[in-house]
């Protein structure tokens, strides 16, 4: 179900080398803002990501069913823990906010225990803000029975635009 897709850019090594340096500033439209207890920023206290920066994170694929769609869907995106590592997150919880002001707290342990994806493509189609884009937090629910629980279902935040590390 879960497969590692080739990391297109050698971003992993780049982040390793410049762990404490500032992030490059976004050039295009900002799709995601990360704030709170992070050590790497590029816009005052926050880390802003445009599409190029998002797509530069190591890509992963995930095939899973969801609770709001039919059948197995294939998702493509980055691992939440990679993002948190990139921004030097130092906290236990994130507060995820969606475009429609949906706000949910998620323990960071979810991202270390499971390969939780922030997907920007579903079935080879880019997720748009008129659907569930720009980013949809997707859990590998088919691989872990405990994730097939209503208490995990509400953490599948779509139209994700802001993460606060706490």
């Amino acid at each position: 179900m879960f497969g590692l897709v080739v990391a297109f850019l050698a971003l992993a090594s780049a982040t390793g080398a410049s762990a404490q340096s500032a992030l490059p500033p976004p050039e295009g439209e900002v799709l995601l803002r990360v704030s709170g207890r992070i050590s790497r920023t590029n816009a005052e206290d926050e880390a802003h990501f445009d599409r190029a920066m998002i797509e530069a994170l190591p890509r992963h694929a995930l095939h899973t069913t969801t609770s709001v769609t039919d059948g197995v869907r294939s998702f493509e995106g980055f691992l939440m823990r990679d993002l948190l590592e990139l921004v030097g997150a130092n906290g236990t919880t994130i507060t995820a906010t969606a475009l429609n002001d949906y706000v949910i707290d998620i323990p960071i342990s979810d991202f270390t225990k499971f390969d939780v994806l922030a997907a920007y493509r579903m079935d080879d189609q880019a997720l748009t803000t008129q659907d569930k884009g720009p980013l949809w937090i997707v859990y590998p629910r088919d691989e872990h029975r405990e994730l097939q629980d209503i208490r995990y279902d509400y953490r599948w935040v779509w139209q994700l635009i802001h993460i606060e590390v706490r």
Binding site: V68, T69, D70, G71, L99, N100, T129, Q130, D131, Q159
Partner: peptide
């Protein structure tokens, strides 16, 4: 966009 997203959701499976 948000409204369309919600309506799209309701049109799904």
């Amino acid at each position: 966009d948000v409204l369309v997203s919600r309506l799209t959701l309701m049109r799904e499976g």
